[in-house]
Simulated assay, not measured.
Amino acid sequence: MGLERIALISDVHGNLTALEAVLADIEGRGIERIFNLGDYVGKGPRGQEVVDRCREVCEVNILGNWDDFLPDPDREYDTEALRWWKKELREDQWTWLRALPFCHDFRLSGRQLRLFHASSTSVHRRVRFDHDEAEYVGMFANTDATGDGPIPDVVGYADTHDPFYESEFGRTLFNIGSVGNSLSDPTPVYVILEGVPESPEPAPFSIQFVRVPYDARAELDVARELGMPELDGYESEIIEGVYRGDLYAGTSPTYHRRSCPS
């Protein structure tokens, strides 16, 4: 079997315009397999359409932190924005999102890969690029959340909206960034994996990061037309790449620092 490419996307956050731009780029490259690492909803205006589109085109869909807490039927929300994003979804989508698997394991070019949203223990535990050694090693561990599968050599995750690649101790950790809510550089980013599927033997293997420009102003206009709350925060994130928490607090960028709340 020859080399195959798999596109990894994540953190679309209701930004349908960004998603369609990335999907068009993926299709233009002839890539047919798409794995989604979660956070389909929240922050942006069209979570319903994003969920439907990802169910249509993604071979693998994984649970994100927003997908877990936003559709919770027993949770009471204390902000207008959270109530708006939840109500914008259909109830059948609430059920689908919360039932998504925690992780996805597979082999590629003789390497054991594991994909999840945020960490090996929980979709709500954030591991940033400036992690310590214990956090790094812990990302490769089997936990109650991952189950007892083969220990991975390569782990890909998302959540922080901050793409990076790191190899230590014979293992590789990478973050695929965000399609719909990329911070610092607001241009959507996704990852292409290339290798030989299910091969037990070593073979060529690559991880490529791809940035895809799109019409962010058009997406902001949609949010405005739909009456979505927190428009100034959304504009800060998708136009300037500045986390809305920093905008509201009037502070310098903190999203990627440990001191930032999750």
Results as ranks from 00 to 15, higher is better:
Asp130Lys: 10
Asp130Val: 08
His131Asp: 06
His131Gly: 05
His131Val: 04
His131Gln: 13
Asp132Pro: 06
Glu133Pro: 01
Glu133Val: 11
Ala134Gln: 14
Ala134Ile: 09
Ala134His: 12
Tyr136Arg: 11
Met139Val: 07
Phe140Arg: 00
Phe140Tyr: 01
Ala141Trp: 07
Ala145His: 01
Thr146Pro: 00
Ile151His: 11
Asp153His: 14
Val154His: 03
Gly156Ser: 01
Tyr157Asp: 10
Asp159Gly: 06
Asp159Ile: 04
Asp159Arg: 14
Thr160Tyr: 05
Thr160Met: 08
His161Ala: 11
Asp162Val: 06
Pro163Trp: 05
Phe164Val: 03
Tyr165Pro: 02
Glu166Asp: 15
Glu168Tyr: 07
Phe169Leu: 15
Gly170Ala: 04
Arg171Glu: 04
Arg171Gly: 05
Thr172Glu: 06
Thr172Trp: 06
Thr172Arg: 05
Ile176Met: 13
Ser178Trp: 04
Ser178Asp: 05
Ser178Lys: 06
Ser178Gln: 07
Val179Pro: 03
Val179Glu: 03
Val179Cys: 09
Gly180Phe: 13
Asn181Thr: 09
Ser182His: 12
Ser182Ile: 04
Ser182Met: 13
Ser182Asn: 13
Leu183Cys: 14
Leu183His: 12
Asp185Pro: 04
Pro186Cys: 12
Pro186Glu: 08
Thr187Met: 12
Thr187Asn: 07
Pro188Arg: 09
Pro188Cys: 12
Tyr190Glu: 04
Val191Lys: 03
Ile192Trp: 09
Ile192Gly: 07
Ile192Cys: 09
Leu193Thr: 02
Leu193Val: 03
Leu193Asn: 02
Glu194Leu: 09
Gly195Pro: 01
Gly195Tyr: 01
Val196His: 09
Val196Asp: 07
Pro197Cys: 10
Ser199Thr: 08
Ser199Glu: 08
Pro200Cys: 07
Pro200Phe: 09
Glu201Ser: 13
Ala203Ser: 12
Ala203Glu: 07
Ala203Asp: 08
Pro204Gly: 11
Gln208Thr: 15
Arg211Asp: 07
Val212Glu: 02
Asp215Cys: 10
Glu219Tyr: 11
Glu219Gln: 15
Asp221Gln: 15
Asp221Thr: 13
Val222Met: 03
Ala223His: 01
Ala223Pro: 01
